[in-house]
């Protein structure tokens, strides 16, 4: 028996919009810790890890650890039928091959049930090692989204370099080249407008912009994004989900041949 009641149902809607273009089918894991997912894109270049902690739900009942295979496009279709202010409850019975999403309007005058078929997914779970990152950049998520979008009109890859001068995003393409440098800026009115750069060692890595642009679909989840970089390791692009958890995207770097 599974029953997860999320008062801020819009969070789940936003999570699906953030990941459904990257991953087609995925197993959602439910345990005492929370509702989570780990999945790779079809080419195994990027990985998404989601955690919605049990404490963030108004009601959280999960009698035993369960893994439920879902088609994210179908799940997104169903969640789009929930209003932005709706309370969403996820319900499942042991041994059932379906899951039910219940949407309640804030005034309780409309209650809808959507039943979705589950699927068997043979997915690989990867162990993500704890890493010491050479540099961690915290910046407004909208700014990061803008940079990725702007650069992708010039080139296909972005070089992200962190030095003591700041963080530089560079690209090069047939029509020319572009460099965008952000300096640390903590003298802002609101903390969510700050750019904070922690650097232990200078680092420079190259990534495919197509994936970065896909990650920025998580922008509505959080005003800030954290980008953690280490030489020859996948970058981590993290969007925190208010008081509940996170969506983390890992992207393998492009390596010089």
């Amino acid at each position: 028996m599974l029953e997860l009641r999320l008062v801020q149902g819009s969070l789940l809607k936003k999570v699906l919009e953030a990941i459904k273009d990257l991953v087609t089918d995925a197993n959602f894991d439910c345990s005492a810790t929370g509702f989570s997912l780990q999945a790779m894109d079809s080419s195994h270049v990027a990985l998404v890890a989601l955690l919605l902690r049990s404490e963030g739900f108004e009601h959280y009942r999960c009698d035993r650890n369960i893994s439920m295979g879902m088609n994210l496009n179908n799940m997104s279709k169903m969640l789009k039928c929930a209003g932005n202010d709706d309370i969403i409850t996820i319900k499942g019975d042991d041994g059932s091959d379906t899951i039910t999403f219940m949407f309640e309007s804030p005034t309780q005058d409309k209650i809808a049930d959507f039943e979705m078929k589950l699927m068997d997914i043979d997915s690989e779970h990867l162990g993500i090692p704890e890493a010491e990152y050479h540099a961690i950049v915290r910046m407004p998520s909208a700014e990061f989204s803008r940079i990725c979008k702007d650069l992708s009109s010039i080139g296909d890859t972005v070089v992200i370099s962190v030095t003591k001068e700041g963080v530089k995003f560079s690209t090069r393409g047939d029509i020319g080249a572009a460099n965008i440098v952000l300096r640390q800026n903590t003298t802002v009115d609101k903390p969510e407008e700050a750019t904070i750069i922690e650097m232990n060692e200078p680092v420079s890595l190259t990534f495919a912009l197509r994936y970065m642009n896909s990650f920025t679909k998580a922008t509505p989840l959080s005003s800030m994004v954290t980008i953690s970089l280490s030489s020859e390791l996948p970058v981590v692009v993290e969007y925190k989900i208010a008081e509940m958890g996170y969506v983390r995207f890992y992207l393998a770097p492009k390596i010089e041949e």
Partner: peptide
Amino acid sequence: GSKQSMITTFFNKI
């Protein structure tokens, strides 16, 4: 030129 690496090169299956 540069080559796209895979995530499975860095993280092991568990």
